[in-house]
Design a protein around this nucleic acid. Structure first.
Lengths: 131, 131, 131, 131
DNA sequence: GTGGTCTAGACCACA
DNA sequence: GTGGTCTAGACCACG
């Protein structure tokens, strides 16, 4: 599935999370979950920049980091593609990407002295809302 | 419960989370859950700074924010105490403090195309580990 | 040895090698060879930028990469220091840093059908000149 | 020696070295060392492009530069040949082609504070491996 | 004071 | 057309 527009991404300009990092993490997740597959062409820096009204350098920085990570590969003069080495992750690995945030939530819950049942039922509710 | 030394706090200097914010949120949680009760004396800025090898200004900034929030109160010449208005929160409010992190986890899960059952069971496991 | 001025670095603005990369590699070598030791404070971005008449962002980019590599560590609000994990490399590793360039030279020599003795004696001459 | 297919060249698309430059330098070395002799016919742009799956424009650019340098000559309608003026170089000139890379290696060695003996013995080892 | 992020815009190298 | 580099300058977060 050749990725067409730049509407893949949703950026929260107000967030404390830097824009370039939001891009990096979204691409990482899209790749891990198989929504982006090796060989898929990424939208050009300029396309994304225009679609999201960002500075091209911001997008470029994200692409650069993703290349260093091995998620994307540069085809000189031709744009970026999803790297062959970035095959969709095994389910165990996908799950692993979620771990840090869940661990943080668990730590906070413990500090709040909330019991597991309360926390789990809250999370279940939120998961339904988000869907 | 007289607040002992500054070993209440655990600070991760390596984390992207600013130090002052780590302090703020830990106090907020301790207060909401009733581990810190109105009238409890807080350790002095100097004590905390020394115990955790932090810049006193960092601790001071956290205290300032907590005072603005009404969690702590400044008693001139006597240091900070937990504010009377900071009674342990109702359970609903305590739960609310956990929401943002869980919402973030839910968003990430959706981007990873993980179904709710998988995510919930992972979270249950992590909650047990953390305990 | 606290690193004082920014005269540690020599930048060739004319080179095809990007400036930020020249900086990265020089710091890497200085660290590996023990001329920069863990804990040493690096000159600030602004100092280097001014001393070498570069844009601060160019220096910042280099520092950012060096942090990702684990060569430097950020002390928030206080500047960069040589990371503890960046202990001077064992001699074998230092030698390893030189390998890629020597391998390239060897490949070129072979393509030029030069015999080893000729190449080695040329290299010996150059090493003396450079000293 | 009639130049066979395009298997003369080995291109590393992943390298930071631009492709057209890799081609130029390989031809230059083959000519200097006498592996390509005046009058030898070069493979056509299309042949090389197809054999190495390169953009023909890339190959063409390399040929253009080599023509400007006087290494190749264009025979209208008949393709490129090795120029008469490109007689195998004198040994001193061949050696000169290797200089830049060796100088770079020497500079890096000095920055790593390695002594000449160590470096030379490492290079000798690598030369044997490469052979 | 420190580094980080983003924007705006120019220029270059590559295919 | 592609991405990369650099400059200039503003603004922010942190300590």
């Amino acid at each position: 599935m050749p990725t067409h527009p730049a509407s893949l991404f949703s950026i929260a300009t107000g967030s404390p999370e830097p824009i370039y990092r939001q891009l990096v993490e979204q691409v990482r997740r899209l790749s891990a979950s198989g929504q982006l597959r090796p060989g898929d062409e990424m939208p050009s820096v300029r396309e994304i920049a225009q679609a999201l009204t960002l500075n091209p350098m911001t997008v470029s920085k994200a692409y650069g980091l993703l290349e260093m990570e091995g998620v994307l590969a540069r085809r000189r003069g031709l744009g970026m593609v999803v790297a062959e080495s970035a095959a969709p992750a095994a389910k165990a690995d996908i799950v692993g990407l979620l771990r840090p945030t869940l661990e943080r939530a668990a730590t906070e819950a413990r500090q709040l002295e909330l019991d597991s049942d309360t926390v789990l039922s809250l999370f279940a509710t939120i998961l339904k809302e988000t869907k």
